[in-house]
Design a protein around this nucleic acid. Structure first.
Length: 503
RNA sequence: GGGCCGUUAGCUCAGCUGGUAGAGCACCGGACUUUUAAUCCGGGUGUCACAGGUUCGAAUCCUGUACGGCUCACCA
C-alpha cells in the first residue's frame, strides 16, 4: 500500500526534530542507561507507603513513554518496561528548565531513562518524582492508539512489536510461554533427562505422517528435508545409551495453515529407556500438572468458556472404547465387512487402501476428537496407523500407544517404542505399499535407522508434546497464531519506502 | 484449494436505499505546578486495498485481483 501523505508528513517532521536535537547536543539514540530497578520492583517495595510520603531514595528506571498528561509547568506521564508501568511526575522547578524543555518535546513512544524519588499522589498512585531524565531513543512513528490498542489482526501478526508494546495481554502470553518451556525443562532435567539437539535438515524425513519442506544442499549436492519430527534421531541416541533424552525445537510440515496449525511449530519429544507407555502416561500427566502448578494456573483452567479439570489422574480410555462411546457404533462387535460398509453409509473419505483400521481412524476423527474436552488419554491405536509403536502384548492389531487430548485437540502422542528391527522393517515396507496406493504421507524406509535397531534398543517409552497447543490452553488462546510470535502469513505487497528514506 | 465475511486518516471506528469524506485518539500551536481515556482554545489530516465496469454522479452497485479473518478439506 502506498504511503499516505499524513504518514510522510509525520516522518518528515520527526526527522527534523532529530536533526534539531543533535544540533543542540542531545543525542536522540543513546548508548546505555544504568537502571537500578525494574518497575515491578518499585511497586512491590513501595506499595505500602502513605499518600504524599516522599521516599528520598534514588531510583532509576528506563522504558517507553506510554502516555503524557501535561499541565503547564508540571506533567504526568506513564512509562513501561518489561515488568510493568509506573507514573512519572515531572516538575519544572525540580528537574530544571533544560530538562523540562526536553520533556516537553517528547512524544508517546519515546524511550527514556529517569532518576528520582518515590511518592504516592493524593489519588494513591505510586509515582516517580523525577529528578533527571535522559532521552534514550526517539520514536519517529506514532504508536497505535492508547485506549483501543492495536486491534487489526493482520497488523498484530506482521508487526508483532507493536502488538507487544500496546497490548499488555500479548506480552503476558509470550512471557507465560517462555516460563512454560522453562518449567518443562526444569522438570525434565530434574528427572534425569538430557537435553540434546538433532538435525533439522535431514536427508530422509520420518517420525510422523506429513508432507515435508524440501531444500537442497549445494556442497553435498543432495536434496534435504526440514524435519517433520526428531523421533528417529532421538531413538538412535537411546540405542547409543543416552537412556533419557529430550529435545525442544521446531518441526516443519508443509500442510494447511489453520487456527491450530502453523507450518513450523514447537515440539518437545522425549525418550526414556526401560519405560513403557503406561509409565509414560503417568509421567505426562504429572509433568503437565507440575508445569501448570508452577505457572499458578491451578488444577482448573477455563479454556474458551469450558472448565478443564487437570486434577490427577486424568481420564483414560481405549481408542475402541472412545469410538463406541461417542459414535454409538459397537465396532468391537462388528465384522470387517460391516465396518467397511460404514464408509459409504457415513460418507467417510479414505486415503490409500481401504481397511477396517482406516475406517476406525475416520470414525475416531469424525465422532470422538471434538468431544475430548477434559484431559484424556486415548490408548491402544491400530497398528496400521502407528508404524513406530510396539504391538500390544496380547493383540497384534493394536499398539501400545496413547494420545493426549485436551479441549478437543491432540496435545501429545506416545508409544512403547518399537525396538524389534524385523518388525520395524516390515512396518516400513507396509508404509511403502501405502505410499504407492496414494497415501503421500506414508513413511520412507530408513535403513540406517533399522541398522541402529539391529544393534539393540532397550525397551523404551517416547512422548511428544505440542508446545504451541499447550500454551494455547494455558493462555486461553483460540488460535495458534496468538501463541507464536511471528506466525506465517502471505508476503505483503512490496512497499515503496525509497522516497521516504531519501528525505 | 472451496465457501462466507472483511479492507475508509498513523491507530480505533462512523459513513443509511449512489449525490462533494467524518469523529475520537495521536500530532502541531497556545493556556494550565497532583493528573490518570486530564481539561480548555486553535490547526489539518485521506490513492475510501488495487484494477476495471455500470451511472449525469461510486467509499457505497457489479466483476476481477491482492491481503486478512472464520470455516471445510489435509494435518499436530
Amino acid at each position: 500500500m502506498a504511503q499516505g501523505e499524513r504518514e510522510t508528513e509525520i516522518l518528515k517532521a520527526a526527522r527534523e526534530e532529530i536533526k534539531k536535537l543533535r544540533e543542540e547536543g542531545i543525542e536522540p539514540y543513546a548508548y546505555k542507561y544504568e537502571r537500578t530497578h525494574y518497575i515491578k520492583d518499585i511497586h512491590e517495595k513501595y506499595k505500602n507507603i502513605k499518600i504524599d510520603e516522599l521516599i528520598e531514595e534514588d531510583v532509576s528506571i528506563a522504558g517507553r513513554l506510554m502516555s503524557i498528561r501535561r499541565h503547564g509547568k508540571a506533567s504526568f506521564a506513564n512509562i513501561s518496561d518489561i515488568s510493568g508501568t509506573i507514573q512519572l511526575y515531572i516538575k519544572k522547578n525540580e528537574v530544571g528548565d533544560e530538562a523540562y524543555a526536553l520533556f516537553k518535546r517528547l512524544n508517546v513512544g519515546d524511550i527514556i531513562g529517569v532518576r528520582g524519588y518515590i511518592f504516592k499522589t493524593k489519588t494513591g498512585e505510586l509515582t516517580i518524582f523525577v529528578k533527571s531524565l535522559k532521552l534514550l531513543s526517539k520514536a519517529i512513528r506514532p504508536l497505535p492508539e492508547k485506549w483501543h490498542g492495536l486491534r487489526d489482526v493482520e497488523t498484530r501478526y506482521r508487526k508483532r512489536y507493536l502488538d507487544l508494546i500496546v497490548n499488555p495481554r500479548t506480552k503476558e502470553i509470550f512471557i507465560l510461554r517462555s516460563k512454560l518451556i522453562h518449567y518443562m525443562r526444569t522438570y525434565l532435567n530434574e528427572n534425569g533427562f538430557l537435553e540434546v539437539e538433532t538435525p533439522i535438515l535431514q536427508p530422509l524425513y520420518g517420525g510422523a505422517m506429513a508432507k515435508p519442506f524440501k531444500t537442497y544442499h549445494n556442497a553435498l549436492d543432495m536434496e534435504m528435508y526440514l524435519r517433520i519430527a526428531p523421533e528417529l534421531y532421538l531413538k538412535r541416541l537411546i540405542v547409543g545409551g543416552l537412556e533419557k533424552v529430550y529435545e525442544i525445537n521446531k518441526n516443519f510440515r508443509n500442510e494447511g495453515i489453520s487456527i491450530r496449525h502453523n507450518p513450523e511449530f514447537t515440539m518437545m519429544e522425549l525418550y526414556e529407556a526401560y519405560n513403557d507407555y503406561i509409565g509414560m502416561m503417568k509421567f505426562t500427566e504429572e509433568m503437565i500438572f507440575y508445569i501448570f502448578d508452577k505457572l499458578n494456573l491451578g488444577p482448573e483452567i477455563t479454556y474458551q468458556g469450558e472448565k478443564l479439570d487437570f486434577s490427577l489422574p486424568w481420564k483414560r480410555m481405549t481408542f475402541i472404547e472412545a469410538i463406541e462411546e461417542y459414535s454409538g457404533y459397537k465396532v468391537s462387535k462388528m465384522s470387517d465387512k460391516e465396518l467397511i460398509s460404514l464408509v459409504d453409509k457415513l460418507g467417510l473419505e479414505i486415503v490409500g487402501e481401504l481397511t477396517k483400521f482406516k475406517v476406525l481412524k475416520e470414525l475416531f476423527e469424525t465422532y470422538v476428537e471434538d468431544n475430548l474436552i477434559q484431559p484424556t488419554f486415548i490408548m491402544d491405536y491400530p497398528t496400521e496407523i502407528s508404524p513406530l509403536a510396539k504391538k500390544k502384548r496380547d493383540n497384534p492389531d493394536f499398539t501400545e500407544r496413547f494420545e493426549l487430548f485436551i479441549a478437543g485437540q491432540e496435545v501429545g502422542n506416545a508409544y512403547s517404542e518399537l525396538n524389534d528391527p524385523q518388525d520395524q522393517l516390515e512396518r516400513f515396507i507396509r508404509q511403502q505399499e501405502e505410499k504407492k496406493k496414494g497415501d503421500m504421507e506414508a513413511h520412507e524406509i530408513d535403513y540406517d535407522y533399522i541398522e541402529a535397531l539391529e544393534y539393540g534398543m532397550p525397551p523404551t517409552a517416547g512422548l511428544g508434546i505440542g508446545i504451541d497447543r499447550l500454551v494455547m490452553i494455558a493462555t486461553d488462546s483460540p488460535s495458534i497464531r496468538e501463541v507464536i510470535l511471528f506466525p506465517h502469513l502471505r508476503r505483503e505487497k512490496e512497499k515503496d519506502i525509497e522516497d521516504d528514506i531519501k528525505e
